[in-house]
Simulated assay, not measured.
Amino acid sequence: MPRRQLVFQTGHYYHIYNRGNNRQLIFFERDNYIHFLRQIKKYLIENNTADIIAYCLMPNHYHLLIYLKNNNFSQVMQAFTLSYTKAINKRYQKVGSLFQGPFQAIHVHQDEYLLHLTQYIHLNPVKANLVEKPEDWEFSSYPEYLELRQGTIPQWNKLRSQFQSVENYRYFVENSPDNPSIQHLTFDE
Rank of each mutant, 00 (worst) to 15 (best):
Glu144Lys: 13
Leu68Asp: 00
Glu46Lys: 12
Tyr120His: 12
Gly151Gln: 05
Asn48Gly: 07
Asn72Ser: 10
Thr81Val: 09
Asn129Met: 07
Asn71Trp: 10
Val108Thr: 08
Glu144Val: 14
Glu147Trp: 05
Asn168Ala: 12
Ile153Tyr: 07
Tyr43Arg: 05
Asn60Phe: 11
Arg160Tyr: 00
Leu146Pro: 07
Tyr62Phe: 15
Gln104Gly: 06
Glu132Thr: 12
Arg170Asp: 10
Tyr120Phe: 15
Tyr120Met: 07
Glu138Ala: 12
Lys86Pro: 03
Val95Trp: 03
Lys127Pro: 09
Tyr142Cys: 05
Asn70Arg: 14
Tyr62Ser: 02
Lys90Tyr: 13
Phe80Leu: 06
Leu148Asp: 10
Phe103His: 00
Val76Cys: 03
Lys127Ala: 09
Thr81Gly: 15
Lys69Leu: 14
Ser141Phe: 02
Tyr92Ala: 09
Thr152Ile: 10
Tyr92Ile: 13
Ile88Leu: 04
Ser74Leu: 09
Lys94Gly: 02
Tyr145Val: 07
Leu123Asp: 03
Val131Gln: 02
Lys127Gln: 12
Asp136Gln: 11
Lys158Glu: 08
Tyr120Pro: 04
Val131Cys: 03
Ala87Phe: 15
Leu148Cys: 09
Asn48Asp: 07
Leu146Cys: 14
Ser161Ala: 13
Glu46Gly: 03
Pro143Trp: 04
Leu68Tyr: 04
Gly96Leu: 03
His61Arg: 08
Ser165Trp: 04
Thr81Cys: 12
His109Arg: 01
Tyr171Trp: 13
Asp136Lys: 06
Ile45Trp: 05
Tyr145Met: 10
Glu135Gln: 14
Lys94Cys: 07
Tyr84Arg: 11
Ala50His: 02
Asp51His: 15
Cys56Ala: 01
Lys42Pro: 05
Trp156Tyr: 15
Lys158Asp: 10
Lys127Cys: 07
Asn124Gln: 08
Leu115Ala: 01
Phe73Ile: 11
Arg149Pro: 10
Phe163Ser: 00
Phe139His: 08
Pro125His: 03
Gly101Val: 02
Pro143Ala: 07
Lys158Ala: 10
Lys69Met: 11
Tyr84Val: 01
Met58Ser: 00
Tyr92Leu: 15
Gly96Thr: 02
Leu68Gly: 00
Val95His: 12
Val166Arg: 15
Lys86Gly: 01
Tyr55Met: 06
Asn60Tyr: 08
Ile88Ser: 02
Pro125Gln: 00
Trp156Leu: 11
